[in-house]
């Protein structure tokens, strides 16, 4: 799970995920398992113009990214897809930091060492 892009101007996981996908992941890490319908209800509170299609596409994109897993559930409301998180937020953040530091170490080794030492001393 290696980020290809880190947006310096963004906060939290929005630095490595597009904003709507980051909002979905924030919710999913909280509830762990959910349906696209429930995520849509949550997202509707944050973005009043969002449509069901947008949520469905983004959740399936998050599945393709490996952050969510999709399975079929036969429940009271009938058969539907349920989505579950594949990794904890902490694990995701750790992997982001590791991959960014790995990239810095391989491209700017001395500067990275120097800066880490400076932080440690400070």
């Amino acid at each position: 799970m290696e980020p290809h892009e880190f947006k310096l101007g963004e906060n939290g996981i929005k630095a490595v995920l597009p904003p709507l996908e980051a909002d979905i992941m924030e919710y999913m890490w909280r509830v762990k398992v959910s349906t696209a319908g429930d995520v849509y209800d949550y997202m509707k509170r944050l973005h009043k113009d969002i449509r069901r299609s947008t949520v469905s596409i983004l959740m399936n994109r998050l599945c393709e990214r490996g952050l969510l897993a999709r399975s079929i559930e036969r429940g009271k409301g009938g058969i539907r897809y349920v989505y579950s998180v594949t990794t904890s937020r902490e694990e995701f953040e750790r992997k982001v930091v590791e991959s960014i530091l790995d990239a810095l170490m391989s491209n700017f080794k001395e500067a990275t060492y120097a800066y880490i030492s400076k932080i440690k001393k400070g």
Partner: peptide
Amino acid sequence: ELEYYNDLILKVRRHALPGIEPSI
């Protein structure tokens, strides 16, 4: 809604940012 879905999924695929999981 289906038209919106189809338009959006094409846009997402054309203009998607690089994925966080390149192996997929």
